[in-house]
């Protein structure tokens, strides 16, 4: 396998429920590579295996897949320090303050107390929660909790970020704000990101490439480069004709992938 790749997935198939007749083929023969520093979105209809792919790369999958997957040249395993995983739900721990949540990953990774606090405070300030670091999640709005979850993920400073529909549950306005926050965080040192979403506009606005998957069993339909210049303003993009052209193209591909499926 290619050592220059941040992520390499080759001929990957994942089946849940063993070989039994009732088993579910979640991912069907998927292959893609991502180079370091790339921001790649994975889009596709719900249930097409996006989360499954992220879980596989994190080493959380109980099933043994067919094919191969590598993260920075290494086989997936839980606790891989090269990966920072941001889960679909905010899942902040309600008994920890914003700061407590932000330091959590560093705590597990045994970073010294003073250092992890300093790093977490810096991240909270960058996501706009500087004055809220002593607040418990119950006192934070949905958008603020998601900002905190972003801080908790980026504080890990891992070379690879896996993000599973992090803004899926937000209203449109808050979503745009958080996409800007994410762009700010990412632009600073351009780590590799695999960003799962079912929102095509979000995928186009953020990514260098968008990988389109079919409905289950998830196959890769297209790999579309997004050649919009950076830095990008998410708001300004909404009025950019090139943005809408790309959006239309992706939409067409996704429609194609859904064809034959009743929803």
């Amino acid at each position: 396998m290619d050592a220059a790749c941040a992520i390499e997935v080759r001929d990957l198939s994942v089946r849940f429920g063993g070989g039994a007749a009732a088993s579910v083929l979640a991912v069907d023969n998927a292959s893609f590579t991502i180079v370091p520093g790339e921001f790649v979105s994975l889009v596709g209809p719900s249930g097409c295996g996006k989360t499954t792919i992220l879980n596989l790369l994190t080493g959380l999958l109980a099933e043994t897949p067919e094919g191969e997957a590598r993260v920075l040249g290494k086989a997936p395993r839980p606790g891989n320090p090269d990966i920072a995983y941001m889960l679909a739900r905010d899942s902040l721990m309600p008994w920890r303050t914003a700061l407590g949540n932000a330091v959590y990953g560093l705590e597990v990774r045994n970073v010294a107390k003073a250092e992890r606090k300093a790093r977490a405070r810096a991240l909270l300030a960058r996501v706009g929660l500087g004055t809220f670091s002593d607040k418990y999640p119950k006192a934070l709005s949905h958008g603020m909790r998601q900002r905190c979850a972003l801080a908790r993920t980026f504080v890990l400073d891992s070379p690879v970020f896996l993000m599973d529909e992090p803004f899926g549950a937000l209203d449109a306005q808050t979503k745009l704000q958080l996409e800007d926050v994410l762009m700010d965080l990412w632009s600073a040192d351009r780590k590799t990101v695999v960003f799962v979403t079912h929102d095509l506009a979000e995928a186009v606005a953020l990514s260098d490439r968008v990988i389109v998957m079919s409905a289950r069993p998830g196959r890769i339909l297209a790999d579309v480069p997004i050649d919009l210049p950076r830095p990008r303003s998410i708001r300004a993009l909404q009025n950019d004709p090139r943005f809408h052209t790309l959006y239309g193209r992706l939409w067409g591909l996704l429609e194609q992938g859904m064809a034959g499926h009743v929803h």
Binding site: L60, P78, G79, L87, R89, S91, M93, G105
Partner: peptide, 11 residues
């Protein structure tokens, strides 16, 4: 949900 993150982090 609170158990997935520690698992991913290798707690």
């Amino acid at each position: 949900d609170h158990l997935v993150l520690p698992k991913a982090l290798g707690a």
